[in-house]
């Protein structure tokens, strides 16, 4: 209740009864008057007010208010304790959760490390296998090249023979000159050597 409302309520509470009070006083003017104003009754009222209010004060101060106060205090204490317990439990739970999360994080890091290592190993293995295969292949290629060179050389030699024979036959048919096989072959190979020399030049 604000100060203002309280003042207004008080004003109403005073003004309204005052109005009626005035009427009552006016109405009872001819009568003996308000019983409240009969001072003969005052000593008795004051006496019993003091006695009974005093007794009431003792009952309230010695029995009622300490008892209610103790109950409220005890309840406050219990609620505080329970709140404290709840707070501790909550802190424990938070700690457990943090532990769990750090464990999880550790496991995740470990797993990532492991995966990385595995990948590296696999790459290494694959590289080794690759190298082996490459080696094998290059050996095969070299062998094949050697064979090819050999074949080429023999083919070249055969070619001289063929050329000599062809030249012999050509000379025989064109000029009617009979050339010995050895001569022809010698000439052919010299020509071939010259040609090869020119080619290299």
């Amino acid at each position: 209740m604000t100060e203002n409302t309280r003042n207004r309520l008080t004003a109403i509470a005073v003004a309204l009864p005052a109005l009626i009070l005035a009427k009552v006083f006016a109405a009872s003017a001819s009568e003996p008057g308000l019983p409240q104003l009969d001072i003969a009754t005052w000593p008795s009222q004051l006496f019993w007010l003091v006695v009974l209010f005093g007794a009431g004060y003792l009952v309230m101060a010695k029995i009622v208010t300490p008892r209610i106060g103790a109950v409220l205090e005890e309840r406050r204490q219990t609620v505080d304790d329970d709140l404290e317990k709840a707070r501790a439990a909550s802190a424990d739970a938070a700690k457990i959760r943090a532990d769990y999360e750090s464990d999880l994080e550790k496991a995740r890091i470990e797993a990532a490390e492991f995966a990385k290592q595995a990948a590296m190993e696999a790459t290494k293995k694959a590289e080794a296998a690759d190298a082996k295969v490459a080696q094998k292949l290059s050996n095969k290629v070299a062998k094949a090249e050697a064979k090819l060179a050999e074949a080429q050389a023999s083919a070249m030699a055969n070619l001289n023979d063929v050329a000599a024979e062809a030249a012999m036959a050509a000379v025989a048919s064109l000029a009617g000159i009979k050339v010995s096989g050895a001569q022809a072959r010698k000439t052919a190979s010299s020509i071939a050597t010259k040609l090869a020399k020119r080619e290299t030049n």
Binding site: A40, T41, P43, S44, Q45, F47, W48, L49, L52, F53, A55, G56, V59, M60, I63, V64, R67, I68
Partner: peptide, 24 residues
Amino acid sequence: YDVSFTNSSLFMLLAIGVSAIFLI
């Protein structure tokens, strides 16, 4: 002095008595 126990005193007693009995 006249300190008779009156209807007013009775209700003072009741106010204290009823409230004390209720609260206790």
